[in-house]
Computed example of a mutant assay.
Amino acid sequence: MIVKDRIMETALRMFKTYGVKGVTMFDIARDCGVSKKTVYEHFIDKQTLIDEGVQQLLNNHITFFQECLQSTENAIEELVRNMRYIVNIAKTLNPVLLYEIQKYHPDTWRSVEKFQTDCILHSIKENLKRGIAEGLYREHLQIDIIARMRQLQLEAAYDPIQYPADQYDLRAVMDQLTAHFIYGIATIKGHELVNQYLHIKEEE
C-alpha cells in the first residue's frame, strides 16, 4: 500500500471512531507511523484530507449500490442487500462524524447532501421502477412521493432521538422499517419474496 493510501486509511478509521474535530494531523501521522511532514506532503491541510476522505466513503457507497444492482435477482433482493450494507457501515461510524462535518465543514457537507439526492434518492427511485417492471411492486405508485418517504425512514433509523442506541438495535429497526415499507408497496408476488429475504415467518 502506498503511503498516501495508508494515511487516508488511517485518517478515515480515526474520523469514523472519534469524529473530525478532535483528530489532528499529528494524531494521524503518529497512528500511521509516519512524520507529520509526510502527511502534509500528500495532503496540504486537514480540510483536504477530510474532503478526500468523505468523497472516498461516498464513492465506496456508489460502487456498492451499482454492483448490487447488477448482481441481484430482483428489486426486493437489491433493496434488502442495500439495507444490510447501510447497517454494517453505520455500526462502524460514530454519529458525531456527520454532526461535526455538518457543523464545521459546510462545503464538505454539501457533498454529502448531493450524495443523498443524486445517489440515495435516485437509487430508491430506480429500485421502485425496477420492482414495478418485475411485478413485485404495485403498478400505480407515485414514485417521487414513495421514494422520499423511504429516504425519511432511513434518516429516522439513524436519529438517536427517535431510536436511542441503548434501547434499539439498528439491525432490528432497519428490518422492521424495511419490511413495513416493502409490504406497503409490494404485490402478492412481492410479499412472498419479502418473507424469504427478511426471514419473516408467517403466523400459524
Rank of each mutant, 00 (worst) to 15 (best):
L193M: 14
Q153F: 11
E192P: 00
H122E: 12
Q196V: 10
V80R: 03
G190C: 06
Y104D: 13
Y85E: 02
T17N: 13
I143G: 05
Q153S: 12
I120P: 00
L154K: 00
V194R: 02
Y158F: 14
L69R: 14
I185H: 09
Y40A: 14
K4C: 04
L57K: 08
D27C: 05
I143E: 07
T117P: 00
R110W: 08
S35K: 08
N74I: 04
Q70R: 14
H180L: 03
V20I: 12
Q70E: 15
K114G: 04
G131N: 14
D51P: 01
T72I: 09
I145V: 13
D51F: 03
M8K: 13
R84P: 01
I89A: 03
K4Q: 12
M14T: 02
Y158I: 11
L93Q: 07
S123L: 08
K4M: 08
R84H: 13
P160T: 03
R150I: 07
Q47C: 07
A75M: 09
L177G: 00
Q56F: 07
Y104I: 04
F64G: 01
I89G: 00
V80T: 05
I44Y: 12
Q102H: 12
C119M: 15
L97V: 04
A179C: 09
I7R: 03
F181G: 02
Y197E: 09
K125Y: 03
